[in-house]
Nucleic acid binder design. Structure first.
Lengths: 167, 167
DNA sequence: TTTAATTTTCAATATTTTTTGAAAGTTTGG
DNA sequence: CCAAACTTTCAAAAAATATTGAAAATTAAA
């Protein structure tokens, strides 16, 4: 596999993985491209490389910037904007975990809390609803804490130690 | 919020969460319904409750069974099949983690491994590609181990201890 | 067997999500 | 201020995904 093949394989794989994670293909591919590009790229270059439209590129770049994993850069003497991605995968996973927690976990936790707090009425179905939503609430809460703390903080040693311990 | 409202809220929330996690709405809602139902339900009952077609119900039930989180049951003297879900959320998360690892993480890890193994050619772009895909490979590998070991095994105490430690 | 109950399959349809591209908006050098 | 360079917006089109429903397949009771 040469450079060109490897690059394409990486970009397209990252793109499909993104889809599976609720991130659209263009967004994931732009990210992949910037991640392996040694220098910042302009919008034109991204469009050209990935064969996607200007509008698509613009919207997805903006979203990546919102997520905090892509940054704008300006080259002196140039009017065009250039883009570059967060290169530290630790920081990357932290941002992604944060975003997913905010968009997916937090709202679910709220609903589970509300639902599990309805009052008992002595019926089996109500009891089951409360029991199961409570259990899910605890789980979601634990997962949320882990995502925001374990993955988030800089104590990468916890991860490493843990992995060695259980591998 | 009364029982009926709480139930509907739970089912529809679980349904949208599913979508976000790459599980379709019907599948997630069927699962939610079975999870809070004290007794096994027939296909008719599921269709009726969720207002979905027979085909849809059949296909998604089958997938839930494949995932190992829903089971068939037979009532004596009855021809119809009844369905019930895994009620232990610990076991549930284990099955889901396993399935997601198999379908999402494992193939990605393989590609990252292949891509990061292309040979150096002295150019900056090749160096960057190798460096970043190696880093992602390590991360994906760690995540995979954690999903299959920490969430998977029965040592729930690790989770609990860890959460207390870092909360 | 035969038949009736039940489940599965899958082409057609509907829905949702993504992408396009051209018009509108913004920024900056002259 | 004007005009060129560039970016954003968003309605329409395309693509991807999910759902339907009726025909085919399966199962088991009679």
């Amino acid at each position: 596999m040469n450079y060109e093949e490897a690059k394409n394989k990486f970009i397209s794989t990252w793109g499909s993985l993104g889809t599976l994670w609720g991130i659209n293909k263009a967004m994931a591919q732009i990210h992949a491209l910037l991640l392996i590009s040694p220098d910042p790229l302009s919008m034109e270059e991204i469009m050209e490389e990935l064969q996607i439209s200007r509008g698509n590129t613009s919207m997805n770049l903006r979203q990546l910037i919102d997520w905090g994993i892509v940054f704008k850069e300006n080259k002196m003497g140039e009017r065009k904007e250039y883009f570059t991605s967060e290169k530290d995968v630790q920081e990357l996973s932290r941002q992604i975990a944060k975003e997913r927690s905010r968009r997916e976990l937090k709202p679910t936790i709220k609903v589970l809390k509300d639902v599990s707090n309805i009052k008992e009425d002595g019926t089996a179905k109500t009891e089951e609803l409360i029991k199961q939503t409570k259990a899910l609430h605890d789980m979601a809460d634990t997962l949320d804490i882990m995502m925001n703390k374990v993955i988030g903080q800089d104590h990468n040693w916890i991860t490493k130690t843990l992995v060695k311990l259980i591998k």
